[in-house]
Amino acid sequence: MSIHDQEKYWDNVAEEKEFPTPFQIEEFEKCVSNEMKTLENSMNFRCPENRRFSRILDVGCGYGRTLNELYNHGFKNLTGIDYSQGMINRGLRLYPDLNLIKTDGELIPFPDNKFDAVILLAVLTSSYKDEEQENLISEISRVLKDNGILYINDYLINQDKRNLKRYNDYKNKYGIFGVFQLPEGAVFRHHTKNHILKITEGFKELIFQKTVYDTMNGNKSNGFYYIGELNKKY
């Protein structure tokens, strides 16, 4: 399935799908706030005032729910990108204060070293090919500043009968155990921890926490959240 086909799927469901995967904002703030606390001490500002200096990019922002959560926590320098025009339209209607931009889904349309943090929530799951994921992480590394923060929420391999059946059913078609196709045509991937650590090997792992998430279709799935710090000298 091509990016164009995935884009059509998300446009078609843009008004009906709700994304329940929680953003671990307390953990995120611990990492992103470190520099801001230093700035607070040197400039005698309150921390919430300084948060607006952190440039944060949400890649695959959907309808902007996570950026809106950050906005309500005092972060103001926020940008979201998504290849679904339907999702962007919904987000701009719901959260008119946010900066949400339609992209082509391949390149991140910003210069090198622009952002302090990048957020990636349930995006790897719908960019299921190894090369697509590797290119995405490469683009994120390019636009992140040195020592910038990458936050990921996504899904891990499950061991229940339902998931194992569809992993096996689609392994020959897609060549990856963990990839499956929904009846409406969209393709998704559940990952191993080793795979996630491999594609993020240019980052220093700060947190990798396994958890269980509700999916957008009302099921349970193994998942994780990850926070890494970019070191461009790696």
Rank of each mutant, 00 (worst) to 15 (best):
residue 25 I to C: 00
residue 229 E to N: 12
residue 54 S to I: 09
residue 109 P to I: 03
residue 26 E to Y: 05
residue 49 E to N: 14
residue 2 S to V: 07
residue 58 D to K: 00
residue 203 F to P: 05
residue 6 Q to P: 09
residue 116 D to N: 15
residue 38 T to R: 15
residue 226 Y to C: 03
residue 88 I to Q: 10
residue 5 D to Y: 09
residue 185 G to I: 08
residue 63 Y to I: 09
residue 124 L to C: 05
residue 183 P to W: 09
residue 83 Y to L: 10
residue 67 L to R: 00
residue 51 R to S: 05
residue 131 E to R: 14
residue 105 G to I: 06
residue 20 P to W: 06
residue 20 P to R: 02
residue 51 R to T: 01
residue 180 F to T: 11
residue 211 T to K: 07
residue 66 T to S: 03
residue 17 K to T: 11
residue 202 G to D: 03
residue 233 K to Y: 07
residue 38 T to S: 13
residue 174 Y to M: 05
residue 9 Y to A: 02
residue 8 K to V: 06
residue 56 I to K: 02
residue 229 E to P: 08
residue 43 M to T: 15
residue 151 Y to G: 05
residue 28 F to D: 00
residue 141 S to F: 14
residue 51 R to D: 01
residue 58 D to M: 02
residue 197 L to H: 01
residue 177 F to Y: 15
residue 131 E to H: 14
residue 7 E to T: 11
residue 226 Y to S: 01
residue 187 V to K: 05
residue 60 G to P: 06
residue 18 E to N: 06
residue 212 V to Q: 09
residue 131 E to Q: 13
residue 56 I to Q: 09
residue 182 L to W: 15
residue 138 S to F: 13
residue 192 T to Q: 13
residue 37 K to M: 11
residue 193 K to Y: 10
residue 132 E to L: 04
residue 82 D to V: 03
residue 125 T to V: 06
residue 1 M to K: 15
residue 226 Y to E: 07
residue 74 G to S: 04
residue 144 L to F: 11
residue 29 E to C: 13
residue 72 N to K: 06
residue 156 L to A: 13
residue 76 K to P: 10
residue 198 K to Y: 10
residue 174 Y to C: 07
residue 29 E to L: 12
residue 177 F to S: 14
residue 102 K to I: 08
residue 106 E to G: 00
residue 94 L to V: 01
residue 187 V to I: 11
residue 216 M to R: 12
residue 96 P to I: 10
residue 22 P to L: 04
residue 5 D to V: 08
residue 66 T to K: 00
residue 116 D to I: 11
residue 56 I to D: 02
residue 126 S to N: 13
residue 155 Y to I: 10
residue 217 N to D: 14
residue 71 Y to W: 10
residue 38 T to I: 15
residue 18 E to C: 00
residue 37 K to N: 09
residue 95 Y to N: 04
residue 109 P to F: 00
residue 150 L to K: 04
residue 45 F to M: 14
residue 219 N to F: 14
residue 143 V to P: 07
residue 47 C to G: 09
residue 117 A to R: 00
residue 211 T to S: 07
residue 80 G to R: 02
residue 85 Q to E: 12
